[in-house]
Design a protein around this nucleic acid. Structure first.
Lengths: 124, 124
DNA sequence: TATATTATTGCAACAATGTCGCATTAAAAA
DNA sequence: TTTTTAATGCGACATTGTTGCAATAATATA
């Protein structure tokens, strides 16, 4: 099953690259030039995640946010960092520093989801 | 506005104290002896959160989990720790160690939400 | 270039989560 | 016992995210 490039996939990927923040489907939809169906946006984003191009964070608002992978190679993904969500302006940005958490014996990490919400510098 | 003790509030609080894990509304509802309405459960839990008796974690499944506050005084709440959610059995437990994250200048922390999902010791 | 193949899309429908208004019930105060 | 009003149950709702299916369009093939 090979991936195909479509208008939607290209636009969404470019948007995610351009914006330096994680976005949920609504933010993405409103920023796209062409109109893309909601279901399609989710499918595109989930495919990107499967391919390791994009990573997904679930906010403390319960929504899924997607961000273009930086500093990630095909093999190794570094997503052990926190994201900061501003409750005023809604921006979700990376807090660069990697965080290491040691799990108890026998525990296997599958997904790291660190999120801090509050007020960002612009909104203080 | 004073709080009243009802069957629902008592049962829910006892359950949260007894179980040593964070639970979402569904887990709570199914473990209650008496039948309590879904909306009521949410309202009770949110009141507990307001009162600082219980804290809320949003899982990477997008659901709200509630846990009885341990080691918290009325004044000081220590919720800067991670939770571990097992994707097999659904259990959500505390990872005791406190984590300190330094935010950039001008950023104000409102809520810490650290969650790691994977497989727990029982399910490996 | 024209045709065949099939990944992708849009649409509609759906499940699930969480919230809210409102009338009713039942704690707690008088 | 009566009064006050916080809490409940019910129904309705908004929102998020997913899925089945027919139509479309990107790529491979002739």
């Amino acid at each position: 099953m090979k991936r195909r490039q479509t208008h939607s996939t290209q636009e969404i990927l470019e948007l995610l690259k351009a914006e330096n923040q994680a976005m949920n489907h609504e933010m993405i939809q409103s920023k796209l030039d062409s109109q893309v169906n909601r279901a399609t946006i989710y499918r595109v984003l989930n495919r990107f995640c499967e391919d390791g191009i994009v990573h997904k964070i679930v906010g403390d608002d319960g929504k899924q946010y997607f961000a273009f992978c930086l500093n990630c190679t095909q093999k190794k993904h570094n997503h052990n960092h926190f994201h900061f969500r501003c409750i005023q302006c809604g921006k979700v940005e990376c807090l660069e520093k990697e965080v290491s958490i040691s799990l108890p014996e026998g525990y296997v990490l599958e997904n790291f989801n660190g999120l801090i919400s509050g007020t960002c510098n612009d909104c203080t």
